[in-house]
Design a protein around this nucleic acid. Structure first.
Ligand code: SF4
Ligand code: SF4
Lengths: 156, 156
DNA sequence: CAATCCCCGACTGGTTTAGTCGTATTTTAG
DNA sequence: CTAAAATACGACTAAACCAGTCGGGGATTG
């Protein structure tokens, strides 16, 4: 159904949180999990994978946490998703996996791969900064924007 | 992982088959299933759904089968996928489904929906004619089979 | 009337995924 | 030095999903 996993979803939320919440301060797993009501152990695993993929830097210890390892505009959502869910493929087959039963007779492989490329580029062109720019709700400090399109308060 | 289901995959293969294999002749489920080595009962269900969605017309009886209900260029792959897998959503939430636990606090919903729109439009701009145009060479069916009783001796 | 084809829903087994648990390691406050 | 706070890692479970199967119908043609 062309759906991305909940893990990836959480990853993007965390990335946006880290982008909005000052790239200077480190945010702990607990802080993020409480902010968005995400099971803490699950989020922990997600953040660890992001760190291992080089998108985040981790700092252990009492005042530790995670920070973006690069400026937000230089991190694409495609990278984030791939770090969590592996290479994003639209079909069961791929350039490196021909294990599909219909591979030899399939007549839509190539056209479908072309469509996949368009999707990937769409995801590559969006950065987490774009996510953050949209509507910076839930940030403790945010400047008041003149009344246009104020998202209805989430009363947090 | 942003992957479409096998069913949708089969549906696209069948649609291309019907587009290439003359929009005049009706093709039976058996014919298509044999051409691409797809389990016949599974393909049957897929074709039925496509018919119910109005993308195919069915003809019962001894020389029946399926035909495209519209010219191939006017059928988008988005339609085909949605007919099989339901409305294509990239996240667990949607305009009509707020059942996600994080819905109220989520900070990536809107930006993600915007990306989804780009993907949907990419799928809507591709027609099954485009699939067929790609490499029209790959139709592994014989053209010379009108009504011939070419039953191979399968010793029934 | 019988062969061929579409129609429909219920079922099953395997895979994937969301979420949990337990334990170890690193850092810093006191 | 020690305890608290934090990341790191892997094994585990329950539920959801999905590919594929079965069986009972009904329509069309010759
Ligand atoms: S080979 Fe064809 S049928 Fe198999 S996964 Fe790729 S596109 Fe789908
Ligand atoms: S509300 Fe947010 S977290 Fe929940 S499915 Fe939608 S985008 Fe994902």
């Amino acid at each position: 159904m062309l759906r991305l996993s909940k893990r990836a979803d959480y990853a993007l939320m965390a990335m946006k949180h880290l982008a909005v919440n000052g790239p200077l301060r480190a945010a702990s797993t607990r802080e993020i999990s409480q902010a968005y009501d995400i099971p803490v152990e699950l989020l922990a695993k997600v953040l660890q994978r992001l760190a291992r993929a080089g998108l985040l830097t981790s700092q252990q210890g009492i005042h530790g946490g995670y920070q973006l390892s690069r400026p937000a505009p230089q991190i694409s959502v495609a990278e984030v998703i791939e770090a969590i869910d592996g290479p994003l493929t639209m079909t069961a087959c791929s350039e490196v996996d021909e294990s599909c039963d219909q591979y030899s007779r399939c007549n839509v492989r190539d056209p479908l791969w072309r469509i996949k490329k368009r999707i990937v580029s769409a995801l590559s062109e969006s950065s987490v900064a774009d996510l953050a720019a949209d509507s910076a709700v839930s940030s403790p400090v945010m400047f008041h924007s003149p009344g246009r399109e104020a998202t209805v308060g989430t009363g947090q």
